[in-house]
Design a binder for these strands. Structure first.
Length: 452
DNA sequence: TCTGACTCGCCACTGCTTTT
DNA sequence: AAAAGCAGTGGCGAGTCAGA
């Protein structure tokens, strides 16, 4: 279903497995449920892809004026106005943080400019799962976010096989874990690759159980809840086109690049025969890192358009992504909430970083003892960074700006820390993710539905 | 309604690392 | 040493959106 949220006057369009329309009614801190009739029409990027997994058209949850598809199904099954009235009477969300991602893309980097996008692998997968009635979840699962009772929750229909233990974790393990703990990491990682894809939190007496993303959210909301704020990303990046020293946010520097350097790029493409069909053009990136790389490399192949592709050249249509992923390490990238590892969003599913990272973190002696603090997380992030003198030259993102190595842990007060209260007979309070899962369960139970 | 710019996700390729 | 695995990166097509 669609969810639209207004926060301090700025509407954020979100999609999620919900039946509600949240609307700010008082200074961005209280949210109220509205019926679908209040929903504005949605089109464009908030709409799931028209393509289904098997290539056929499916019933899609769209907020149009017509009672079609999923919405019509809901209306047939329940009198939705009664549902809204009921939910309004028992839910009260209190937020002291700008909820720009609801549910948050837990496990990866999230910031104000990094809201959920329907094309992300996570939401695509969530849509498929939640639109299917094939599975029924454990109704007690969400409670595991709080309690130490043995509960289980699987947010994934399947889990990718774990990555092999990599050098990334080696230095960390040398300092933090003994041999037994290394075995525990391996066992834990292997366990996570089993068909159940579930494993337990290793925190002291905690018995919460779930998949990788669930456990990351659980750890950050339950065991290390207070001081961790949402990192807003690198404060600034530098253009570096030739000798340009223009600095700013990734978005502003990209605008600057388009305004000031695009003509230069086109001229380079023309000179080097990099102009292709349909107005596309490929040019050598003029940042020092790419120029040095090009000097060291030979042309690699011939392109369909007859031009020769060289190391360090890029098409203009891909240039923003190139800047963000190669030079700035900022923008539309995903970041691990535990170690700060940054990768392109579309690579997260394939790389399966979370499995190994979570294993290493939960193997920390302090974490297993149950006395880990935010300093433990900060220490873990520091130790997980690639030491510059140990980096293979080709692996290191040569030219990447320093912000990539900044820890994401910020010591902030409650006033900027995500904190949400959901009153549903039991009055829990906690992270956005946790309350979101509870709300999802409550709505399911209320509607008597197996899935939304 | 059309069009061009833009975003997103999938895929292929290269080269390095790890395993056998 | 060969094979397999993986990280880094760019190409490409489909979808989206805003402006003409």
């Amino acid at each position: 279903m669609w969810m639209i949220m207004k926060d301090n006057g700025a509407r954020t369009r979100l999609w999620g497995p919900c039946l509600i329309f949240l609307h700010t009614v008082s200074s961005g801190s209280n949210f109220r449920l509205y019926s679908f009739s209040s929903l504005p029409s949605t089109k464009g990027s908030v709409k799931p892809s028209a393509r289904s997994e098997n290539g056929s058209e499916e019933e899609r949850p769209r907020c149009t004026g017509r009672r079609t598809g999923y919405r019509a199904r809901i209306r047939r099954e329940r009198d939705f106005s009664l549902v809204v009235e009921r939910v309004n009477s028992i839910i009260h969300l209190r937020a002291s943080h700008g909820l720009t991602a609801f549910p948050p893309r837990f496990g990866v980097f999230a910031s104000e400019n990094d809201g959920p996008r329907h094309r992300s692998a996570y939401f695509k997968r969530r849509y498929v799962e939640l639109d299917s009635d094939a599975e029924e979840e454990d109704t007690d699962a969400v409670e595991g976010l709080y309690s130490s009772q043995a509960v289980s929750y699987s947010d994934r229909a399947s889990m990718s096989p774990p990555r092999k233990k990599r050098a990334l974790g080696a230095s960390h393990e040398e300092s933090e874990a003994d041999c037994d703990e290394e075995e525990a990491i391996v066992e834990d990682t292997q366990a996570s690759s089993s068909s159940s894809a579930l494993r337990r939190c290793t925190w002291h007496t905690c018995a919460a159980e779930g998949d990788d993303d669930f456990l990351v959210a659980h750890i950050l909301s339950v065991h290390l809840p207070l001081k961790r704020g949402f990192h807003s990303g690198p404060a600034g990046v530098t253009c570096e086109w030739r000798d340009c020293r223009h600095t700013g946010t990734p978005e502003s520097v990209w605008r600057h690049t388009k305004e000031v350097h695009k003509a230069d790029a086109q001229q380079l493409a023309t000179q080097l025969g990099g102009v292709g069909r349909n107005g596309t053009f490929r040019f050598p990136c003029q940042r020092e890192a790419c120029r040095l790389r090009a000097l060291r490399a030979e042309p690699v192949d011939d392109q369909a358009d007859g031009t020769e592709r060289q190391i360090g050249t890029v098409q203009w249509t891909q240039f923003k992504r190139h800047c963000e992923s190669v030079h700035w390490k900022a923008g539309s990238l995903a970041r691990c909430a535990l170690c700060g590892f940054v990768d392109r969003r579309e690579s997260w599913k394939r790389r399966n970083h979370t499995t190994g990272c979570l294993s290493r973190f939960m193997a920390l002696p302090a974490f297993r003892r149950g006395d880990a603090t935010d300093e433990s997380l900060l220490s873990y992030q520091n130790s997980s960074r690639w030491p510059a003198d140990h980096l293979p030259a080709s692996r290191f993102p040569f030219g990447a700006q320093e912000s990539i190595h900044e820890p994401i842990l910020t010591h902030t007060g409650l006033q900027v820390n995500p904190e949400v209260q959901c009153v549903w007979d039991c009055n829990p309070k906690g992270s956005v993710y946790m309350v979101w899962k509870m709300l999802e369960k409550c709505l399911k139970n209320l509607l008597g539905m197996r899935s939304l």
